[in-house]
Design a protein around this nucleic acid. Sequence first.
DNA 1: ATGACCAATTGA
DNA 2: CAATTGGTCATG
Length: 623
Amino acid sequence: MNPSIARVRIDVPVRHLDRDFDYLIPEGMDVRVGSRVRVRFSGRLVDAYVVDVATEAEVERVSPIQRCVGGIPTLTPATLALVQAVAERYAGTFWDVARTAVPPRHATAERAVVTAPASTGTGTAPTGAWPRYSGGPELLTTIASRTVTRAVWSSAPGTDFVNEVVELVAANPGGTLVLVPDMRDVRRVTASLAPVVGAEALSTLVNEMGPQRRYREFLRTLLGSARVCVGNRSAAFAPVADLSLIILWDDADDTYCEPRAPYWDTREVCALRSHLADCSLVVGGPARSVVTQAWVERGWATSIVAAERSTLRVRGLRPEDAAGDEAAASARIPRRAWEAAKEGLAHGPVLVSVARRGYIPALVCQGCGTPVQCSCGGPLRMASSGAVECRWCGSTAPAGACRVCGDTRIRATSIGAERTAEELGRAFPGVPVTFSQADHMVERVTDRPAIVVATAGAEPIVDGGFAAAVILDAGSRSVRLTQAEDAVHRWFSVSLRVRAEAPVFVTAPESDAGVQALLRWDAPWFASRELAERESARLPPATRLAAISGARADIDAVVSAITCTHIVLGPVEVGDAWRVIVIAPRAEGTAFTHQLRHAAMTRSAHRGAGAIAIHVDPRDIDE
DNA sequence: ATGACCAATTGA
DNA sequence: CAATTGGTCATG
């Protein structure tokens, strides 16, 4: 007998209705798991997805499905499982995840795609990128044999990730998903892949697309006419047919964090998907993120690094540099940095990397300039009264001696990147100065001498590479959870854009572990040290952390329902709401997020309960 | 959320 | 005693 009951999830903005409801499938209506439907719920018409079918309803009275939207079930069983896993992992709702996993239907696009013939196209496979890595050729063999593997790679000096990606895609016999941070990378990867796999076999899924094009590309992916999908953040859910490999480039990039609830992270979505779909996952980056290093150290992924040494002439601040150079000790540019820039300008463009625009307020140690932290690991703020307070736990008597130099004095400072860069530009009259930043990115520059000032992640590309790089604000640390990791990530990203044997000047002490990592071109070593620090500070990825904000009564109700091992920091007042941070051991992570989700559902059913926001494992705890 | 429903509260 | 308000409950 045909199933006549559909179990659906409805799109309503209340947490406690995030459960199955049974509806009758009317005679002749083609409704399957994954179908998008319209149902009457509590008197009104709402959107829903069919998540299961059955022959018998769980309740006596079931109302019929009103309408089936579109001819094709768009939420495939694999994506459905992923959506549910992500909702569970981030203590979020099914629909908050499903909304980004499946783009809105577009009838015109549907008609065009369903009638178009499928195509196959294969060109010649390129070679040469992976032999530069130890374990590289073996990775290609593993991928080619369709053996499931998880690997993380740190770029070899002077390489362009596009080549590594193209070779992996060419080697993979099944469907491939390629995720990159931004549109520029999507264009570059697509342009290089088109001659290899054929333009017809490629689909592009990016957030910035219009509804029609986006739905068309989604359907081409779903129906298997495109066997390779290239996209950014939310393409992590793309229903690639016969998926056997996910490639994630530059997982440390912040654009991989979904800005809307439940604030999932593409890197984590990929890990879940690789597990659920039993497909390979290869994550690459200029350096090594602490999270992927944790994967390696846990034995879940293998580490792939450069087989060769870097020939870059990396130079940091040395104690002797300060002598006779007052600028080195202040916020201005040290003499050695000018020299590196000058040397580079004789041969080509010079990349000047700045942390970010504007001025960043921070509290630092008076002795050595290291940002001060609370004993709980949180950032400190100075109130207008001059009192120092922790932004995480609210403690007003934090700090103690600086963990670097032992000094107990604190000073407030601000970091001005832009002015320093302009100063550098003025110092070389007649040399053109270009600015590149995230919202106004310069994609490519010529190889003529120029000063190119770029913020993190917005470094332009030059054929042949930059003739030198100067990394400013390297010593300045933000209050971010991942500050040290971010800084080193920027140094490696910049260094990747520089020609062999060219000078790279970093405005951080050469004794600094990050500079040592850059000198030795050993990002995993640095990530491993950072991971050890996170472990002792009980921070992710060593633990599972949830930042919960809302009204105090709502927060209290949710936090008091947690029964697994946990610690609570706060609450602290953030704007007109309150926030607590709850940390649980990683081993109890599943129970922790499950309890959080359950508690939030229960609370939401109460009269007078307000909305609460739950951020699980945020990359940063914002103000 | 939103409407249904029951109960305690208030007004003529 | 009816109208009003406030809280609980279910929504298929």
